[in-house]
């Protein structure tokens, strides 16, 4: 089952649209609530990241009986040092983004904590693709 959502740069108001819709689907599939929560938290973080840092992008979700596969692909500045970005507290968010309560440098580490597979690919000046997978059981 495939779902797609568009992310618009700076549109924090709509952060969480994709994760909310995915949540509804997983509830209908009777996925364990704690697993649903992990998926939603990770996807929400990825959505916020793309909204805060990039010039828009796409969320591609594929759900099958056993797992969910999520790709958040953005066009943006990219991440020069992924290992550094994976550290808790590291943030390059602009002050106005931090003022909105985002940009605490917990995004990627939080995703890592909640998913079974995480793959971040990035090209500076082109964009970032975050690929995540969560197994249902």
């Amino acid at each position: 089952m495939h779902q797609e959502y568009t992310i618009i740069e700076g549109d924090f108001v709509n952060a969480g649209k994709a994760s909310s819709s995915v949540k509804k689907t997983l509830k209908q599939l009777d996925v364990n609530p704690s697993v649903v929560k992990r998926v939603v938290v990770a996807l929400y973080e990825a959505e916020v990241n793309a909204i805060a840092h990039a010039y828009g992008g796409k969320v591609l979700v594929d759900i099958d009986e056993d797992k969910i596969h999520m790709v958040v692909a953005d066009k943006g500045p990219g991440i020069p040092d992924i290992a550094q970005a994976m550290q808790e507290g590291y943030s390059t968010a602009r002050p106005e983004v931090r003022d909105m309560g985002f940009g605490a440098g917990m995004g990627l580490p939080n995703m890592q904590k909640n998913v079974d597979k995480l793959d971040v690919k990035s090209t500076v000046g082109v964009g970032t693709t975050v690929e995540m997978e969560v197994n249902f059981s």
Binding site: K27, Q28, L29, D30, V31, D64, E65, F136
Partner: peptide
């Protein structure tokens, strides 16, 4: 929940 069996729900 659509079905207790996830396969059927899917």
């Amino acid at each position: 929940t659509l079905d207790k069996d996830r396969k059927v729900a899917f």
